[in-house]
Amino acid sequence: MKLRTDSSIAVVLPSPIGDSLIGLVLVNNLIRNGYRPVVFGWVAEQLADWFPHMTVGRPDAWQGAFDTVIELRPTDYASTLSRSGRTLCFATLPEYGGAKHMVDRVVDIATNVLGLRDVTRANGLVVPADVMPGRFANRVVIHPTGSHPEKMWGRAKFLALSRVLIRRRWQPSFLVAPAEIGGWSDIAEEGHEVNALPRLSEVAKWIAESSWFIGNDSGLGHLASCIGVPTLSLFMRQGLARSWRPGWGPGAVVLPLSVLPFGGLRERLWQRLLSVRRVMAAFQALHGKHACAVRRYSTADFGDAPAAQTTCIGMLPGARSRRL
Rank of each mutant, 00 (worst) to 15 (best):
H148Y: 07
H143A: 15
V25C: 04
L324R: 11
A300I: 05
P172E: 00
S258Y: 08
L30D: 01
G219L: 08
V107E: 06
V25G: 01
P317T: 02
D108W: 04
L3E: 06
L24C: 02
I166L: 14
I31K: 02
A156R: 11
D130A: 12
E267W: 07
L72H: 05
A177T: 04
Y35S: 03
R167V: 03
C292M: 14
W153P: 00
R4K: 14
L21V: 12
V27M: 09
G23D: 04
S275L: 03
E190M: 10
K100A: 09
G134S: 02
V176D: 07
M132D: 05
V106E: 05
W270V: 08
W212V: 00
Y77E: 14
R73S: 09
S147T: 15
V294M: 13
S79Q: 15
H143Q: 15
G215D: 02
W170P: 00
S15A: 13
G154H: 10
L260H: 03
N33M: 08
W62R: 09
R36H: 14
V203F: 03
A48P: 06
R242D: 15
V259Y: 05
V229D: 04
M54Q: 03
L159R: 08
A282R: 08
L240T: 15
A252H: 07
G23I: 05
P128A: 11
F158C: 01
G23M: 07
R169I: 02
L257E: 13
L232S: 06
S8G: 08
L161E: 05
C226A: 06
C292N: 12
V141R: 00
M152S: 10
R169C: 11
H148Q: 11
I31N: 03
R268T: 03
G124F: 00
V194T: 08
Q284L: 14
G146S: 09
T5D: 07
S7P: 02
L273T: 10
I31C: 00
W170D: 02
G182N: 14
Q63R: 13
R245G: 00
T311P: 00
L47A: 01
I227L: 15
R268W: 12
C312L: 03
E267F: 05
T120I: 14
L240I: 10
W50T: 00
P14T: 13
W206P: 01
K151E: 02
P172F: 03
G64V: 09
T5L: 12
I31R: 07
G219I: 02
L88V: 15
R135D: 05
A137D: 10
S15R: 15
V259P: 01
F90S: 06
P261H: 10
D67I: 10
C89A: 06
R266K: 14
V27H: 07
L232F: 05
V39R: 01
A78E: 01
R83M: 13
I214H: 00
P133H: 06
G303E: 00
Q171F: 11
D304P: 01
D6L: 01
Q238E: 13
A137V: 14
R4H: 08
R245K: 15
C89Y: 02
D104G: 01
E209W: 04
Q238R: 14
M236G: 09
L81M: 08
R135A: 15
W244M: 12
R83E: 06
P16K: 09
L260M: 07
L161T: 03
L286K: 03
L30S: 06
W50C: 03
P144E: 08
R105I: 04
A307I: 13
T92I: 04
R320W: 03
L240V: 11
